[in-house]
Design a protein around this nucleic acid. Structure first.
Length: 205
DNA sequence: AGCACGATTAACT
DNA sequence: GTTAATCGTGCTC
């Protein structure tokens, strides 16, 4: 039986949270109660204002304020004039850190995902931080929401356990203008493609 | 008030 | 491989 991930899960070192989120399930419950969900297969850690790849590098602003909040909240930001991306806030309140969810394996609600993704969804439904947000209908209203609240409509559940050999790590994506060492730190976590290929989600579609 | 840019994506050569 | 799309945000004037 799946369990909700608790605030205690998120209030830990961000690298541990990012790694442990692999295989967990992101769930959105819509009005009417239908579920849309997917297993997390890729995530990245952004840790503190010293991390020059992190939005918190320039200090607290209206946009990134959620990163300073308590663990287990959503940090949803808008970028490139059209895309939304979802993070889960980590560590202690007052320290800006979060995990960016970069890709899901669809499990439930694929019809709703396709409807929201449109024609391009046939190529890739939930692979990419903005694609997964579009598929689940996540945008500005979710910023700051508590994902650990009992009545949350967006939350995380236990899914499958990914053994260490099936976890691959590498530099975070899209930080081309970020100086070293932050640009190359291995703070991106993914389920190895070979392991992913054998995953047929047991959770029903 | 104006401006450069972005933790991206889709479409194209 | 390249590049346009598109606009909120944070910074400068």
């Amino acid at each position: 039986m799946p369990r909700r991930l608790t605030r205690r899960f998120f209030q830990r070192p961000t690298l541990s949270v990012a790694r442990d989120l692999l295989g967990a399930r992101l769930v959105r419950i819509e009005r009417g109660g239908s579920r849309t969900s997917g297993l997390i297969v890729e995530a990245e850690a952004y840790i503190g204002s010293d991390d020059l790849g992190c939005h918190a590098r320039a200090g607290r602003t209206a946009r990134n304020a959620s990163m300073w909040g308590p663990a287990g909240r959503a940090y949803v930001y808008f970028t490139y004039g059209m895309h939304w991306c979802l993070n889960v806030v980590t560590e202690d309140e007052g320290f800006p850190a979060a995990v960016l969810l970069r890709a899901l394996l669809p499990v439930e609600g694929q019809v709703a995902m396709r409807r929201r993704r449109g024609p391009a969804g046939n190529r890739d439904l939930t692979g990419g931080p903005a694609r997964l947000c579009q598929a689940l209908g996540i945008e500005r209203g979710f910023d700051g929401q508590d994902l650990c609240s009992p009545n949350a409509t967006l939350f995380l559940e236990t899914g499958i356990t990914i053994p260490e050999p099936d976890v691959s790590k590498g530099p975070r994506v899209g930080l081309n203008k970020v100086p070293e060492p932050w640009r190359s730190l291995p703070w991106r976590f993914l389920i190895r493609p070979s392991a992913l290929a054998s995953l047929r989600p047991a959770g029903g579609a």
